[in-house]
């Protein structure tokens, strides 16, 4: 009983301190810097933040290719946004944010997520295979059946029709890209994570206390025989 009282007396201030300092989950993303990027309106934009309420302002955002070659640099604005021009081809890109004082975050944008932003994406190697074939055959098939069902491959479509189709495709692609931008942004945000939550905080405290208790137990086990020698019989 005395031991429990002493323990409470000595540990209570510290426990109170830990609880007082215990932050709300939404506060909990101080010093991991996050960046995520998405394609919109013929450019790639990135957003960088320490926490939801704390954007990285005037940080250096860097766009690099898969080999680490820097393609473009930009500085974040008040909202943590920094935009870059599209690279020449749809390729895997890495975005990093240098927020000063050794803070750095990184985000990888895959070529697949980027391909739709390119005007020539249908002929680009990343999606020129099955997807392009399905799209073109899907669009052209009804036209073939209505015009001349007997000889579908005999007459190639004339130049004017091809131009119309490609123009229409470009318009649809642009519109889709515009409408999908917020979804891409939300997906990138989910992928990047929202910083530590309650689970990580409690888990971390549990790990620390568990390790300390384990070490203390080990010490007490080692000391016991010396401190309390076994009584002699008789």
């Amino acid at each position: 009983m005395d031991a429990a009282r002493t323990f409470l007396r000595t540990q209570l201030p510290l426990l109170a301190g830990v609880i007082l300092l215990f932050p709300l989950p939404e506060q909990a993303a101080a010093h991991s810097v996050h960046i995520f990027a998405w394609a919109e309106d013929g450019r790639i934009c990135s957003e960088s933040y320490f926490a939801r309420s704390s954007r990285v302002r005037d940080g250096e955002a860097v766009m690099a290719d898969a080999q680490g070659r820097v393609l473009a640099r930009s500085r974040t604005d008040e909202k943590g946004l920094a935009c870059f021009p599209l690279p020449d081809t749809a390729q895997d890109l890495t975005f990093s944010i240098l927020a000063g004082q050794g803070h750095r975050g990184e985000f990888a944008l895959r070529a697949v997520d980027l391909a739709a932003a390119f005007p020539s994406s249908l002929s680009s190697p990343e999606i020129s295979g099955e997807e392009a074939h399905t799209l073109s055959s899907g669009e052209e098939a009804p036209a073939d059946t209505t015009s001349s069902g007997a000889a579908p491959k005999a007459a190639p479509p004339d130049a004017g029709q091809a131009e119309d189709v490609s123009g229409l495709q470009a318009v649809v692609r642009r519109e889709l890209q515009r409408q999908l931008a917020p979804i891409h942004q939300a997906l990138a945000e989910i992928q990047e994570g929202k910083g530590p939550g309650l689970r990580e905080i409690i888990g971390g405290i549990g790990w620390i206390m568990g390790l300390a208790a384990l070490a203390q137990w080990g010490v007490s086990r080692r000391k016991k025989p010396a401190e309390n020698p076994p009584r002699e019989k008789g």
């Binding site: 323990f7 000595t10 540990q11 510290l14 426990l15 301190g17 830990v18 300092l21 215990f22 932050p23 506060q27 909990a28 993303a29 101080a30 010093h31 320490f50 926490a51 309420s53 704390s54 530590p196 905080i201 971390g204 405290i205 620390i208 206390m209 390790l211 300390a212 208790a213 070490a215 203390q216 010490v219």
Partner: peptide, 20 residues
């Protein structure tokens, strides 16, 4: 060691209290 652990935990959570 328990004091060491408790203070370690205090440091662990103190870094989460941030302000701009």
């Amino acid at each position: 060691l328990m004091e060491v652990g408790l203070l370690s935990a205090a440091f662990f959570v103190a870094s989460l209290v941030h302000f701009p």
